[in-house]
Design a protein around this nucleic acid. Structure first.
Lengths: 281, 281
DNA sequence: GGCACCCATACCTGCTGGGTATGTTTCCAG
DNA sequence: CTGGAAACATACCCAGCAGGTATGGGTGCC
């Protein structure tokens, strides 16, 4: 199976319309029909059901769509990472991705220490929304990520623990509890008039329910500052000051571990050095 | 990047010899040279160092080799799984992989129960050597696996726990300890004249040291029966009788969890039903 | 120094991917 | 019931590229 065929199939499977898919691919419709037909013949059965007025996926088509997306991600990753590794000077040799606003202190120290290391390469920092690190590692936009367990998942990645810390409640500074020296999870169970935030789940969607949908930490701090929500975050979040926001330690909140993670098959020297630097901090 | 180019590059990178790689690929050497040259131009730098007497990989080449292998596995998986899903009758719709000799009882019950389920599809069982399940899932030879934590790794997979159990020492039946009602790990630390077995590590290789290299459980039982080694295994191993082998519970051995695992992006109905059946056992 | 080995280059050929034009089926409008 | 529009398949042509053969150039070995 050629890469082109996979891209063609994914386009048709997503558009469910040959002509639109062809337009998206920048080719005419007939070659696309032919390519899909050949693919179906080679794989031994229909992938698409052509119902006079549009197209639907067969079971086999659904399987191929999921597998093809994964395969295309892997191919994109191969191209991006290799291009990055061919030291053509201008490009960074490594891209590190982290949630915007998280682990700022750790990140600064890591980058400074690594830059001082002999033989270190240029590192670009890619600050993304919550839960976006996984996809970026998968399609090669990034080589290495800072993740926070248990919120993020290290499925499919190798990782090293960097820092484990407790959590603090982040509350509107007008809230009566901000003067308390500490809180417990039970206290937070049912804060009147402050709905729970909804964090993105693995698929990128949001769970149902009331409360605001959170995509990044700037949004989160602003909502808290406006008195519309609260949350708990790792202690290191206290290092940053935000308007209208106060923090109180939560004694029995689960500990958060910041880890550095990379795809299992990565074996580059630059990456290994960066990981080693991180674990030594 | 086209699939063909990736296959060509991997062949050259593995052979480190254009002519041999071309022979392996079934093409002549000049088109191969040309294809690699074009790849290097497109990726912006050399992937191979041509030293008159052979070829070596550059850093970028090493990156591409690792990434290309992963990508080709994903493409092979796409093709195999799709072909399997195009219900062409003869082929199984799902392939389940497990270590030969492990979890026999559980596996039998799972397959029987699933076969009785309405809408169940044909399941082929692939019994492999120790640690082979991961690669089989990655390149699509299998769709779903039985793994045993903490020995196997579920990195990159979704999984559900099926069964947690203690472990027993598996000893030659001539060993004096087989009459004991129980043992402790400390007892086993240093059994005279019985060297520790070497299990395959993640890469497929074996750690250094004395003792036999173990590739499957038949081999393991035979070695123990011959009085050349011992091991500890999950309790359920007692269900099977082996010549010259006896078992004694080890009270403080870490518990073993049998899990059913599948690639994260898998979303087929047949697979979901099988997993559901397994978790309900 | 001749030779063997190995990769690159030059040049030719046939396959195939892509374009345009047209066919076939189905659904909808009037 | 019929004309037409929408949508995918088919037919046919062309150009580009993958692959083959022949050959060149560089290097180490006998």
């Amino acid at each position: 199976m050629e890469t082109r065929e996979l891209r063609y199939f994914v386009a048709v499977a997503e558009e469910l319309h040959f002509s639109r898919a062809a337009a998206r691919l920048g080719i005419a419709q007939p070659p696309l029909s032919r390519a899909i037909g050949r693919l179906e013949r080679r794989l031994g059965g229909p992938l698409l059901e052509r119902n006079s007025r549009g197209v639907t996926l067969t079971d086999a088509g659904r399987v191929l769509l999921a597998e093809a997306r994964a395969a295309l991600d892997a191919i994109d990753a191969a191209e991006r990472r290799t291009r990055r590794a061919t030291g053509d000077g201008a490009e960074p040799a490594l891209v590190l991705v982290s949630k915007a606003g998280a682990s700022t202190e750790l990140l600064t120290k890591l980058l400074d220490t690594y830059a001082a290391e002999p033989g270190s390469v240029k590192v670009e920092v890619d600050l993304c929304g919550i839960g976006e690190q996984g996809p970026r590692l998968r399609d090669g936009r990034a080589d290495i990520a800072l993740l926070h367990l248990p919120f993020d998942s290290v499925d499919g990645l190798d990782s090293e623990d960097l820092l484990t810390e407790g959590q603090v409640a982040v509350l509107p500074s007008s809230h009566p509890w901000v003067t308390r020296p500490q809180l417990r999870l039970a206290d937070l169970e049912d804060i009147p008039s402050l709905p729970p935030m909804r964090w993105p789940s693995a698929g990128g969607g949001f769970p149902d329910g009331p409360g605001p949908e959170i995509r990044d930490l700037a949004q989160l701090y602003q909502l808290i500052g406006l008195g519309r929500a609260y949350t708990i975050l790792p202690e290191s979040a206290r290092a940053e000051q935000h308007h209208g926001v106060a923090t109180v330690p939560v004694l029995d909140a689960p500990e958060v571990t910041t880890v550095i993670a990379w795809p299992q098959h990565s074996r580059s020297l630059a990456l290994a050095t960066l990981v080693q630097t991180a674990t030594r901090l």
